[in-house]
Design a protein around this nucleic acid. Structure first.
Lengths: 229, 229
DNA sequence: CGGTTGTTTGAGGACGTTCAAGTACTGTGG
DNA sequence: CCACAGTACTTGAACGTCCTCAAACAACCG
């Protein structure tokens, strides 16, 4: 693993608070891969052989039904580690992972990681915190799916995209494919498109990848977003 | 805390593998409450003051929108501990908890628990594993919501209710209110009722709380249930 | 035994999907 | 640099699923 990759690893939420010497030990047994859009990292039902840490790029966690139908459960961004629960529990993957845009991924072998977790309380602590954070993200998504309409989910997504802005105008340059975002939000690309159009009524103007928001607070109010995140 | 409650606590998934002396220490600072149906354990947005361990009964974790609209995210059964992520991260609750049927609940103060987690690797390990298990339950639910129709969700629910039966006939005596199950599955009681009726076509006969399944394998096939759980 | 609460059934409607067609990008090779 | 192919996105029309509302029915409890 290159020094720059090692440094990136040490800045991820999962490893940020882990003593450097423990990270180093894991890094020695690990390797880094750069993979193109479309690559399959692992498959639902398979055994977890690595912890994947996304250094750069984006990957989708995709759930599949036995008949082949698929859905995007979560999109992982740079800095995310996945999928820890499968490694901890030595349980088969509940989802497949697919590269959405060219990604640089550190792969940490499961066996040594499990041993390190058992020997190093700091690492287990970091794992527990990482799991707790993802748990909350999943709960938010379930609330999203059960409480909000498609239009509202789009509004909520846009407003979290500009979470640094409390109120007033904002401009987003979405660098993801709309189809990925739509899939993550549990809707078709067509519905995403219609929702964006619909949001003009609350001051959202879109031109391709560029989306202008008149007043973030108004968008938040429409989406029913509260302070919790 | 009574000796019998302490014993029940020690058999929960979260505390099963925690050394008894650590459990004892936590149990000393804890107390047990019996609460009736409808009681509110804590509210979304509030600060996490206790880890709740459900010794007996059932509780619903309920997400709310700012306009008051609610949904059931998860139903906790005897042996479940909640909500650990809020305690670990010292973050506000993302959901409220409501007693669905008279429940006996151990309440472990958050402060001492956090200190114990930091001092006792065994406890942190148990916490991480518990979080990992719940993470998978939430992922399964998201897949359920995104990949399955209401009818299929009901079928999937029934088939997990009789998971000890691989194939052949089974009889369920659902002791929960249908409205709770429906809410957990993300549908109205009316839709649940219609789904149950619809499932007659795959050999499900219902009479009030009693549900007879001709062939569990057939039901599973209809629901698209795979081996993963 | 009445009142309350939970469940079923029906009719109508909203939301989001599917399918189909058209338009705008993006990147590649000439 | 342009032509072209392939992909992504948009728009429209029709359909299906599930919800809402309303009413009847059943079960439970004082």
């Amino acid at each position: 693993m290159k020094a720059s990759d090692r440094a990136t690893l040490g800045r991820t939420p999962m490893f940020r608070d882990v003593p450097p010497e423990i990270c180093d030990r894991l890094a020695i047994g690990a390797f880094v891969q750069t993979l193109p859009k479309g690559a399959l990292l692992f498959e639902q039902g398979g055994e977890a052989e690595f912890l994947h840490v996304l250094l750069e790029g984006r990957c989708g966690l995709v759930g599949a039904r036995s008949d082949g139908e698929e859905c995007v459960v979560e999109i992982m961004h740079a800095g995310s580690a996945f999928i820890l629960p499968a490694i901890l529990l030595e349980a088969p993957y509940l989802m497949s992972a697919r590269v959405l845009e060219t990604s640089r991924i550190a792969m940490i072998p499961a066996g040594p990681l499990r041993r390190a977790l058992d020997q190093e309380p700091h690492l287990m602590r970091a794992a527990a915190f990482d799991l707790a954070r993802y748990w909350r993200i999943l709960v938010q998504q379930i609330k999203d799916l059960k409480l909000r309409s498609a239009h509202e989910r789009v509004a909520a997504h846009l407003s979290t995209m500009c979470r640094q802005t409390a109120a007033g105008p904002a401009v987003l340059n979405l660098d993801q494919e709309f189809r990925s975002i739509a899939a993550k939000l549990g809707m078709t690309p067509e519905s995403w498109s219609r929702s964006i159009r619909q949001l003009e009524t609350v001051g959202v103007r879109s031109a391709g990848r560029r989306i202008e928001i008149e007043d973030v607070a108004r968008l938040r109010a429409f989406a029913g977003v509260d302070g919790l995140q």
